[in-house]
């Protein structure tokens, strides 16, 4: 294991921020920590990095206990914070070079790594820019470059795409994948389930400081009773027809509004065929049909009874 967190407890006075949290991150994976705002993701990361004192539990990184003075461990960690952590007075190049020089002593190596990081995040045209001259997306890319320039083995990204436009977000996600392909283990925290689904090989869902489920995205979806969600553009449906549809096998929930029929089915196959059969046999006019598999939000909803973004 690259990171192993056991029974981590962290209190802010009376508030229990982490409640016997357990995490295990394997080498070479992109591990997602998914949870709503205030669920304890950042607190967990700060404890893992020995920035925050914790009340109970143990943290090991690269097989060694993590401490504030564990410089040999810190040397191999890269962190990309939720807030952009760069000096406003230094240019893009100087910022990356400065943070890289905290990890690498050799001046030539720092220069080379800085240039590589700039290319990696595509900031070649902005090397002499001060951070205040950069757009939100470019600033996030600079933030990433400052965290990964020294080529660490473990990269921790704490909600790196907050307030970033979709185009920049995709670029950031692509680069994280590339970092992983280059051999880095990645811990990625987010409350955007789409990002975590798209990026992470394994995911822990966290709520109220506690891990409520861990697994691959398919494993997580298999934990719940819901199957596919079918949306049909249908016209003039009556109440009794909706009731009849509810009685079709494997149907869990039927909703109808604004000419959109939304059916949540239980786990099982051929739910779509049964629905289409019913619509045809009752001469109900219908248009477009969409189906989608359950999302991590559905998983979160079923386990906690609330939406991921509540």
């Amino acid at each position: 294991m690259i990171v192993e967190v056991k029974n981590l407890v962290k209190r802010y006075d009376k508030l229990l921020a982490l409640d016997h949290l357990n995490l295990a991150v394997k080498k070479g994976e992109i591990f997602g920590l998914l949870g709503p705002n205030g669920s304890g993701k950042t607190t967990a990361i700060n404890c893992i990095l020995s920035l925050l004192k914790y009340d109970k539990g143990s943290i090991e990184i690269f097989g060694k206990p993590m401490r504030p003075d564990a410089y040999d461990i810190k040397k191999n960690i890269g962190i990309i914070m939720q807030n952009v952590a760069v000096f406003e007075e230094l240019t893009v190049y100087e910022n990356i070079s400065y943070f890289c020089s905290l990890y690498v002593k050799d001046k030539k190596e720092v220069k080379q790594l800085t240039e590589e990081a700039i290319v990696f995040v595509s900031l070649q045209d902005f090397t002499k820019f001060l951070p205040k001259k950069l757009s939100g997306g470019l600033l996030r890319r600079l933030n990433i470059a400052c965290g990964i320039a020294h080529k660490p083995g473990l990269i921790i990204l704490d909600e790196p795409t907050i307030a970033v436009d979709p185009q920049s977000r995709n670029k950031i996600l692509e680069r994280i994948k590339k970092l992983n392909e280059n051999g880095a283990t990645v811990i990625y925290t987010s409350h955007y389930m789409e990002e975590v689904e798209q990026l992470c090989s394994r995911i822990s869902i966290i709520d109220k400081g506690k891990v409520i489920a861990t697994g691959t995205k398919d494993e997580l979806k298999n934990m719940i009773s819901l199957g596919e969600k079918i949306t049909v553009e249908a016209y003039n449906l009556k109440e009794e027809q909706l009731d009849e549809m509810m009685r079709i096998s494997n149907i869990a929930q039927v909703d109808y509004s604004d000419n959109l029929l939304e059916i949540k089915s239980k786990k099982g196959k051929n739910n779509l065929i049964h629905i289409l059969d019913y619509l045809q046999s009752h001469d109900i006019n219908f248009g477009k049909i969409f189906t989608e598999m359950p999302t991590l939000n559905d998983v979160f909803l079923e386990i906690t009874g609330k939406e991921l973004r509540d």
Partner: peptide, 24 residues
């Protein structure tokens, strides 16, 4: 402000680096 993790984001990044805080 710039050296303390609880004062600034830059401070947090510095505190995670493998450089002794007092040296920096």
């Amino acid at each position: 402000v710039d050296i303390q993790a609880n004062q600034s984001a830059v401070g947090a990044r510095i505190n995670i680096s493998p450089v002794h805080k007092m040296k920096l």
